[in-house]
Structures are given as C-alpha cells and as structure tokens.
Simulated scan of single mutants.
Amino acid sequence: MRHQLLAFMPLVVIACSGQADSQQAPMSGARPFAVTPVADFDAPWAMTFISGGRMLVTEKDGRLLLVSADGKSRAVVAGTPTVDSKGQGGLMDVVAAPDFARSGLVYLSYSASVPGGKAVVLARGRLTEEVAGARLEAVETLFTAGPAIDGDGHYSGRIAFAPDGRHLFFTAGERQQFDPAQDPKATLGKVLRLTLDGKPAPGNPLAARGFAPEVWSYGHRNLLGLAFDAQGNLWEQEMGPKGGDEVNLIRAGANYGYPRVSNGDHYDGRPIPDHKPDDGFEAPKVSWNPVISPSGLMIYSGAMFPAWRGDAFIGGLSSKALVRVDLNGTSAAKAEQWDMGARIREVEQGPDGAVYLLEDGRSGSQGRLLKLTPRT
C-alpha cells in the first residue's frame, strides 16, 4: 500500500448518455483520503456490517469471520456450508438481512459441487452468539443457479436486497460458457429477482416469454457488483472479455447483449460486435478498455464524504484501483481512479460513513481491510 498522500489533482469527468464511454480514465495522481489498515485476512471476498459496527467477513477457502469494529478481535463463525474453493470459487458474498436486528438472518453465496458439475448457491442462516462462540443456525439452501457446469470460473454470486424489503436480487455468471447468457431456460449470465426465501419473485418480466421464472435481466458475463441507489435504481458492474468492463443500469426484462455484443473481444482474438444504437441490446452506461477488472460495488450515502454522496465506488483487481463513477439519475460518467497498490476485491460503506476496502490477496496470502477517511 502506498501511504504517501500527494496534492489532489481532479480528473475531468466524461459525460455519458446512451452509448457507453469506453475511454480509460487515467489514474489520479493523488488520493483525497487517509488510509488506515484495520486487519489482515486470508484471501477475503466480501463483508457486511452488523450491530455495534462489527463486521462479517468471508474468506475464499470457506471461513466466515465475526470481526470487532476496531478489527482487533475475531471469531470463526461455525456452521457455514461446505464450499468448492478451486479457481474463482469459494465462500463469496455475505449480506445481513434488512431485518437482521430482529431476525439475525445472514445471506451467503458460495460455489459448490452439485450433481452434474459446480454451481453458485444462495443460502441463509441465523447468526447466534453464545459463550461457546458464534454460529450459523438453521442454514438452508435457497437457490442454486443452473445448469451445473464443470469448471471453476465466473460464478458471480452478488446479493442485493430490494428497497421494498420483500425481494432480493442475485447474480449468476455465465460460467465461461458464453451461450447460457442468452439461453432463456438457464439462470446463468443473468440478474435474478427472488423472494427472501429464494423462490421466483411474482411478476418477473420474462416468465411469460418462456424464460426461467427467476430471470430479471440477461445477456451478462461475470457480474461482481450489485447495488441500489437512493432513488431505487439497480446498478451492476461486470467483467467484460478482453476489454469492455461494464457498469449497467439494470432494467426489467432487458438484454445486455453478451456474447452477441460487447465493447471487448474474445481472449483468443475473435471479435465481438460493439454495442451500437438501436441494436436491440441495453448498452452499458460506462465501459473500460483497457479493463479495470471490477469487483465489488458500493453506492455512497454517508456524511463523511458529502461530495461523493450518490456516487458508485468499484474495486479494481488487475487495475489495483479504487474507481469512482459519478451517478446522476439514470446517467453515469467516469470520475477518479486511485492507485491503491493492491488488488481490491470489495468496497463497503461503514456505519460512520467511512469507506472500507478489502484487498484481494490469494489463498494462503494476506489481504488487508482498509479504512478510508477524509484527509485532515
């Protein structure tokens, strides 16, 4: 991590409407925030805040940790599901239920070996704390994306609760198989809208057209960020192929085009047609080429950084960056991109309005939890 703080040099924000802007935002030469390391983890993947400013943190190999607000103490939460952590798999997202203070329910995603191959799974359990330690009780599988696929990539598995508190949205990657993203019967390469029990939500827009009843939108690749803004708009970011990382405004029933169109190409050099106006596909609001390898998406609503309220923050893996995207209603534009010196897997907002980052690390190596606060 680079701790020196240089003079802040703002970037020009590039307007974006309709067709996505694919120009690469340059790295900002400075960071307008102080960085405080809080804790170290073994290949962490996601985190969520619960009562008292404490955190639940997932580690790729399958551990769920209950961490104190200051990061100085932690306990392994017993009762988590068995995961298949090969490749891009592992214990992935963790989100406390909207009524966590009453119910104690925690939602998890993870990759698992299932009949026919491997799949991303949505599960939930009740967090209990006793003298003997923390535990997930009554863990139940809510949904398994399909079809099952051999291979260890593009699980996705991000969770976002709808503002109505009665539904959740879940991302299922196309598992590096391309075509499932356009297959109406598959739930791969899709944003899914479910009840809190993991059932297809009534009124999903594509069921009457023969799609799997869980599908809300389709034509996606590897969806690693999902969040609602204060106006109820659902934003999603995903890794493109060779080029073409995307931020999308998710619309009910829309087709986002992959693999028929993309602002990138296949890794073997085969071209993919670019998004074009009126091509029948929903174009990204912002795209990157060269890529940033986005992972983790947070829309800021705190008071600590008032100028950023309502904007999206994305972790960059290959770019080793924190990326800000300026959101304005249903429009988006690139803003700053700060060099963080390490792969950033997760971005979250703390109860006090600070921004928290999880460095990616690797299995068997450390990834730090960092707290960002305004420079003084």
Rank of each mutant, 00 (worst) to 15 (best):
R2D: 13
H3E: 05
H3Q: 13
G18W: 03
Q19M: 14
A20G: 15
A20N: 10
A25K: 02
P26N: 11
P32E: 04
F41S: 05
W45P: 03
E59K: 04
K60P: 05
K60M: 08
L64W: 05
L65K: 13
V67K: 06
S68Y: 10
K72Q: 15
P81D: 07
M92T: 08
V94E: 01
A96Y: 06
A96T: 11
A96D: 10
A101E: 15
A101Y: 10
V106A: 07
S109A: 13
S109P: 05
S113G: 12
V114Y: 06
P115M: 00
A119P: 02
V120L: 03
L122M: 11
A123F: 08
R124Q: 13
E140M: 04
T141G: 07
T144R: 10
G146L: 09
P147A: 13
A148D: 01
H154R: 02
A160T: 08
T171L: 02
R175L: 03
P184F: 12
A186C: 04
K190N: 09
V191N: 03
L194W: 05
P200R: 12
P202N: 12
R209E: 11
G210I: 05
A212Q: 03
A212S: 12
P213T: 06
E214R: 02
Y218H: 15
L223T: 14
G225Q: 02
Q231I: 00
Q237S: 12
Q237E: 14
E238Q: 13
K242T: 08
K242S: 14
G243T: 08
G244W: 07
G244S: 12
D245S: 08
N255K: 13
G257T: 10
P259A: 15
G264C: 09
D268G: 04
V291F: 01
M298W: 04
Y300Q: 07
A303H: 13
A312H: 04
G315I: 06
L322K: 06
R324F: 07
D326Y: 11
D326C: 04
A332T: 04
G341M: 00
A342F: 00
I344L: 00
R345C: 01
E348I: 01
E348H: 01
V355D: 06
V355I: 15
L357Q: 04
G361N: 09
R362P: 00
S363Q: 14
Q366H: 04
L369K: 05
